[in-house]
Design a protein around this nucleic acid. Structure first.
Lengths: 243, 243
DNA sequence: AGACTTAGTGTCAAATGTACATAAGTAATT
DNA sequence: AATTACTTATGTACATTTGACACTAAGTCT
């Protein structure tokens, strides 16, 4: 528990996409719950503090519940159905942790992108456990969190075609193949290796490093890095990723 | 004043884009203000009701303040800087209309698109006057409303290239030229008439009506209508409007 | 040395984008 | 009735981009 005053009506929820080199995953938490059995998992989220910026609330909540820090975070939608807190288990749980468990809560949702193998996830605060779950195996979640994830994914699919956010899911140095896998995982389609390479390289903001993979039992792949500076100079339309 | 209980912490603000055939405008309101002089204009907005859906709150607020109804409305961002209510005049005004004038307010912003000559605007509730202002002549507004408008316009510029929302700004029957003007006004560029026509027609969801302009002192233009049904069948990527 | 695996490359045909000029239809003017 | 003024409507040639497709290269493993 923290000592800051919380705003009872506004929360922030975070859909965290993680890429493990193959599949797209989402970070879920199990919450500590005194005497409530069969509690559904949830995505990280909590009330905002009374005088805290929304973006910073998102950063804080992520840090408190999962230990993640300094990652790409972007607001994508706010959810405010009056009945979004209506499942019995959810109400019971809120009674154990909130000062005003019956207050109506509007949530501002963020999504973030990280490569799931490069961060140590450490549950804390009211999270008992934090773990990755493949995007196609998300169970029923608390509150309206399934809806929030659906919306986030829809948003991500749209966005990746128009902005090079795929790089956020990769380590600093990465191969063409890894990048391609991200597009394939998010969009759910297969892409041609040669055409993909050509398209991406045309955009100029990929710079080849002088390193290659080592120890792989095949021709080693070239590593590239993403040059944010060059990206900012490129016309937006030069990026569009047609399918 | 209405008798519903309002949620003191969450409001909805609406950026209403109107197209008059030439320029892009924004709807502003002057508020009734007892004894406060030099009150800045604002965009329509108010607190949400305690058990009201966000989207419906947006519709209601628009209706109450401007008389507008059944228009395209879309949530685009939420604003929650802790100091977004900090101008003295704004605070004074809130004291005259709000039960909890000091409460921190997060606002969920929507934008909408209408053709400005096809709706009668009627200020009411706490709006004294409602009127159109060209997008490049927006004065300093109350709260963070200038920032909200900037964000809305950025969003609209991005969106119009990927989704055919331009039609929302036109009457049911419209000419190629009118449609082209919208793109030009929003994107702030000139387009080639012939190439524009070809590009739009390729998308298939424009159907020529059998009517033409009448009474114009030049070759009359063909009217078209937008077929939403066909649009839904078209692949998203077939729509991209490259510049 | 040979097998295995993934990286990396080139070409051609089709589709798309860009730049640009002229004829056609209407009302107003003479 | 002819002319003017104005805006719509259309086509073509060239450059660029996309999509489909198969083989060689570089490393490990046995």
């Amino acid at each position: 528990m923290n000592t800051y005053r919380l705003n009872p009506n506004v929360s922030v929820d975070c859909v965290i996409f993680g890429f493990d080199g193959e599949k797209l995953n989402i970070l879920l938490i199990d919450r500590k719950a005194q005497g409530i059995l069969g509690q559904s998992p949830a995505i990280p989220g909590d009330l905002i503090r009374e005088s805290e910026d929304l973006d910073r609330a998102a950063e804080r909540i992520l840090r408190e519940l999962t230990g993640l820090e300094k990652i790409f975070l972007e607001q994508f939608h706010s959810f405010g159905k009056p009945d979004r807190i209506s499942k019995n288990k959810d109400i019971e749980w809120l009674k154990t942790v909130r000062a005003e468990p019956d207050a109506r809560v509007i949530t501002v949702a963020y999504y973030s992108l990280i490569r799931s193998d490069s961060y140590e996830i450490a549950a804390s605060s009211f999270a008992k456990r934090a773990y990755w779950k493949p995007i196609d195996q998300i169970p029923e979640l608390s509150f309206d969190h399934n809806e929030i994830i659906d919306e986030a994914l829809k948003n991500l699919k749209f966005r990746i075609k128009y902005q090079p956010i795929g790089f956020e899911l990769l380590p600093e140095k990465f191969t063409m193949r890894q990048l391609q896998r991200i597009y394939e995982a998010i969009l759910g389609i297969k892409l041609d290796k040669r055409n993909f390479r050509r398209k991406i390289l045309k955009m100029k903001f990929l710079i080849p490093s002088n390193e290659k993979q080592i120890g792989v039992p095949h021709k080693p792949a070239q590593f590239y890095t993403f040059d944010k500076h060059i990206y900012n100079e490129v016309k937006e339309s030069d990026f569009y990723f047609k399918l």
